[in-house]
Write a protein that binds this DNA or RNA. Structure first.
Length: 256
DNA sequence: GTTGAGCGTT
């Protein structure tokens, strides 16, 4: 019942894969199994998950033993509300082994039959389908934004490394300038602090604007993040740690 | 805590 996908694909010699889209990110195979099993014999239910986070990618594969049952499931479950989400059920276009499917010709045949058989009664809005089609023709790229998230993460990893190297290379000048900048920043901070303490009406007007400014805040954070990366691999930055870091600041001031 | 319109695993 709940041992699906644990031992990999059981047998795809005579099974038909259905692609279930638009499922909730927390929907599991166990949740889909009973739903699909009601309309036919479900051989396997598999939900691709992210390798790093292990979270659901938002779609699942349901393997049926017979095409007619799978077709029925598609017709009955397509557009069904599952876990508060309107799921879309359709025959899988690409299988785990495209060659195999081509050789078998089963899935292809079923798909063709399905397309010519039903697909007429679909309560789901066509905007998405239309949009998808148009998008595919127009851009032929950029399939999903959710995936971009992973790519972004990957880029972030690379960028992090780049930053680390960059810092290493310019460690000498950076340090010298960093101290200067630190002092300046400290001075400016002090000034700001005083201004805030003063609670000047004019300053107050500017205060909220600074908050909205997306340039001033991120820069400071970036600096902190960069320093943090160079100091420690820990990505988490605690206010206490920052305070500790700032500790030498006042000392420097005293020295100065 | 979050997103999305997508095709798969030991």
């Amino acid at each position: 019942m709940s041992h699906f996908g644990r031992s990999g694909p059981p047998d795809i010699r005579d099974t038909y894969s259905l692609l279930v889209l638009n499922i909730s990110f927390r929907t599991t195979a166990d949740d889909l199994y009973p739903l699909f099993d009601k309309y036919g014999k479900v051989v396997d239910v598999f939900i691709p998950r992210d390798r790093r986070t292990g979270e659901s990618r938002g779609f699942a594969f349901v393997r049926y033993k017979y095409a007619d049952e799978a077709q029925k499931a598609v017709d009955r479950l397509d557009g069904r509300n599952v876990d508060g989400r309107n799921i879309m059920v359709q025959f899988a276009k690409y299988g785990p082994n495209a060659e195999r499917i081509s050789q078998k010709g089963r899935i292809v045949e079923v798909v063709t039959k399905t397309k010519g058989r039903s697909r007429s009664r679909s309560p789901r809005p066509r905007t998405r389908d239309d949009y998808r089609d148009r998008d595919y023709r127009r851009r032929s790229r950029s399939r999903s934004r959710s995936r971009g998230r992973y790519e972004r993460d990957r880029h972030y990893d690379r960028e992090r490394d780049h930053h680390r190297r960059s810092r290493s290379r310019s460690i000498s000048p950076d340090r010298g300038r960093g101290r200067d900048r630190g002092r300046l920043a400290d001075e400016r901070r002090s000034s700001r602090s005083r201004s805030f303490d003063s609670a000047s009406p004019a300053r107050r007007s500017y205060s909220p604007r600074r908050s909205v400014s997306p340039r001033g805040t991120p820069r400071g954070a970036s600096d902190d993040d960069k320093r943090s990366n160079g100091r420690s691999l820990s990505r988490s930055v605690s206010p206490k740690g920052r305070a500790d870091s700032r500790s030498p600041s006042p000392r420097n001031s005293g020295e100065d």
